[in-house]
Design a protein around this nucleic acid. Structure first.
Length: 489
DNA sequence: TTAGGGTTAG
């Protein structure tokens, strides 16, 4: 177009910026930015928003917000651009901050605004703020929007309130429309809470209601089967996906199948699936899925083999090192454990530190393994190591040291402090809330370890409290000595 | 003819 001697106008620039955003191509985006300035479209709100969106989608959050700030006016769309840009690119708190700013300057949020801020709450698992937003959604008259309601389902589900998610979903009975995305989000919600049977029932009901599943629906369904130990059902649906619905499984679906087979103990079948049945090259994620199955089923030999594959693809993968060392520890191969650890030290690979968050009285408290900076730390540690541990031992608790992974730089200091973050978070919540209080909801950045899982079951029994832990992959709902996952995770 | 949003493996 330019070679032909034509000048781009605001429409051309907006379209091409959208392309850069989709490609996450900031290099071309910057060039277009220069054209925008040269051609005098710097103050155009549509072009400016496209620019802002492009920067934010490329991960340049502050640059994007700066561009938007320089526009002569702000409107709902430009604010939504900043909010969604932050939420979708790793800064949900920033998205919520901008939402409050938007209201302060007198702009009214619309349905799109709410889908973004609800998504921020899903990520942060801040049920309190999510519920407040639900109220505003109703007041602003956007509850009937389907995108808003699927965000509500997800927010409640990821905040640990499956029943509230169900309630929003069943509002269809009050005359609200439903679509495939709402169905899929409810199926995903059941999976995340370990309710595989319910996920399957809903899937069947969805088909009866005339909705054709897409690849996302299947991913959620396979995930639900995998996390509930429904191996045969999972295989059946995986086949149906291809044969009945003519959907080609993607790498993600294969990853789910590897998890389904491996988790249920069929490690060789899972390995065969990766090595021979998959039409695409496996990525690190597939191998790591298989490796964590090796850990669950204590297969050190396969773990070695798989870990080597991962380290060929990424020699600095921290999770692969940690998993491998844990598999060795499980088999009492302490020499191998030391080898893995010294390898990590050489390559300067460090374990990702475990962190947990708990919301008490609308305030989020953060705990990190080995970090004593919480103002109540001393009291929490005393309570956990003293009274609580004593009572747990009376119920037969024995600390499972195979899961302890000392920080290598500061091993001695760590071992004296190494109480996992979720234990601290729960102990804190018990101390500062009444014994008859609502469920304690904790979010964690890694997968829960077996020792914490045993401990949580006992703590729920001893204190009579319901404890809900969201780890990176799913929910564990502890009550009266048992967990909703049925020890299958 | 240009700007923003929902479900998704590990």
């Amino acid at each position: 177009m330019r070679k032909g001697g034509f000048f781009p106008d605001e429409f051309t620039l907006g379209s091409v910026l959208r392309g850069c955003a989709g490609l996450k191509d900031a290099i071309s985006g910057v060039q277009i930015h220069a054209d925008v300035a040269k051609l005098g479209f710097k103050s155009d709100i549509c072009v400016g928003s496209s620019l802002g969106h492009m920067y934010m989608n490329c991960g340049l959050l502050d640059e994007g917000e700066r561009v938007m700030k320089e526009l002569p006016i702000r409107n709902v769309v430009s604010c939504n651009t900043v909010i969604a840009g932050r939420v979708q690119n790793g800064d949900p708190e920033g998205g919520l901050r901008y939402f409050h700013l938007m209201k302060q300057i007198g702009l009214y949020p619309d349905g799109i605004t709410f889908t973004s801020v609800l998504s921020a709450c899903s990520e942060l698992a801040t049920l309190g703020s999510g519920q407040q937003l639900h109220g505003q959604v109703v007041k602003n008259g956007v509850v009937s929007e389907m995108a808003v309601r699927s965000s509500l389902v997800k927010m409640y589900s990821k905040s640990g309130c499956l029943t509230y998610a169900e309630r929003v979903f069943h509002e269809e009975e009050d005359g609200f429309e439903v679509d495939l995305v709402i169905w899929s989000s409810m199926i995903a919600a059941y999976g995340f809470h370990g309710c595989g049977k319910e996920a399957i029932e809903l899937f069947e009901k969805m088909s009866v209601n005339g909705f054709e599943p897409n690849d996302v629906t299947f991913l959620s369904l396979l995930y639900a089967c995998s996390h509930s130990g429904l191996r045969e059902k999972g295989e059946q649906y995986f086949n149906e996906m291809r044969e009945v619905y003519r959907l080609e499984p993607k790498l993600e679906h294969y990853t789910c199948m590897v998890d389904l087979l491996g988790r249920s103990g069929h490690l060789e079948e899972a390995e065969d699936l990766v090595n021979s049945d998959m039409p695409m090259d496996p990525d690190v994620v597939v191998w790591k899925t298989l490796l964590s199955c090796c850990k669950v089923h204590k297969n050190a030999e396969m773990a070695e083999r798989i870990a080597r594959r991962i380290l060929e693809l990424d020699p600095h993968d921290s999770a692969a090192h940690v998993l491998l060392s844990q598999v060795h520890a499980d088999s009492d191969r302490w020499g191998d454990v030391l080898d893995v650890r010294s390898g990590m030290k050489e390559k300067k690979v460090r374990k990702e530190p475990g962190m947990s968050w708990v919301e008490v009285k609308n305030k989020v408290h953060q705990f990190r393994m080995g970090d004593t900076s919480h103002p109540e730390y001393k009291r929490i540690e005393e309570y956990y190591r003293g009274e609580l541990t004593r009572k747990m031992k009376e119920h037969g608790y024995v600390c499972d040291i195979t899961t302890v992974f000392h920080d290598m730089e500061d091993e001695e200091k760590e071992s004296s402090l190494s109480v996992h973050s979720e234990k601290l978070a729960v102990a804190f919540a018990i101390l500062v809330t009444p014994p008859t209080g609502p469920a304690i909801r904790v979010m964690k950045n890694l997968r829960m370890c077996t020792d914490c899982h045993v401990a949580m079951k006992l703590i729920s029994k001893i204190t009579g409290r319901e404890i809900v832990v969201r780890d990176v992959t799913r929910f564990h709902n502890f009550s009266d000595g048992d967990c909703s996952c049925g020890d299958y995770w």
